[in-house]
């Protein structure tokens, strides 16, 4: 009886791990999508409404979801509270703080970091160029993430259950 419970536990936990890993791929894609959406909203605020950065980021935070929303809210807060910080510094600090909750890859993080350095420190035209460039990069990354998701999501999930089963059989 005890063996049976143990075996079930092993199978279930491996299965869950597989599912979480699979779902992370979906979440990663979703984060990239939210980021692009947020940056598009930021573009509207900066380029067309000429809203000052702290307020613009606050508006963007309201329009996005999950950890991405938290990230934009953090930058806005950092800018409002931090004494003597440029937009780029506030962006980096917030990114560092939110990083553990994000599923973005190292490459994507460095893209964001790089973009943040010029945030708010140039004229409208230059800001638009930067926003367009980062949005294009993120769109490419999203496509890649989507392909990875389609390829690996099922594999992870199946692999989880299979590993659990194999391990149980080995122990039995």
């Amino acid at each position: 009886m005890l063996k049976l419970i143990g075996a079930l536990l092993v199978i279930i936990s491996f299965g869950v791990i597989g599912m979480v890993l699979g779902r992370n791929l979906t979440k990663h894609t979703e984060e990239l999508r939210q980021l692009q959406f947020g940056l598009a909203a930021l573009e509207t605020e900066i380029i067309y409404a000429l809203t000052p950065l702290p307020q613009a980021l606050k508006t963007v935070a309201r329009q996005t979801k999950g950890p991405i929303s938290k990230f934009f809210a953090e930058v806005s807060q950092e800018l409002n509270e931090g004494q003597g910080q440029t937009g780029g510094e506030a962006w980096s600090k917030a990114l560092e703080r939110v990083a553990p909750y994000l599923l973005l890859t190292e490459g994507e993080m460095s893209c964001l970091e790089q973009f943040g350095q010029g945030l708010g420190s140039s004229d409208r035209e230059d800001q638009l160029k930067r926003l367009t460039s980062i949005k294009m990069q993120l769109a490419t990354r999203e496509k890649e993430a989507e392909t990875t998701k389609n390829q690996f999501q099922k594999i992870w999930q199946t692999l989880g259950w299979a590993c659990g089963l194999v391990l149980t059989l080995m122990f039995i």
Binding site: I46, I47, L50, T51, P52, L53, P54, A56, L79, Q85, T86, G87, A90, L119, G120, S121, S122, D123, R124, D126, Q127
Partner: peptide
Amino acid sequence: NSSLYALE
């Protein structure tokens, strides 16, 4: 206020 673009 880190918003040079708004001060054109």
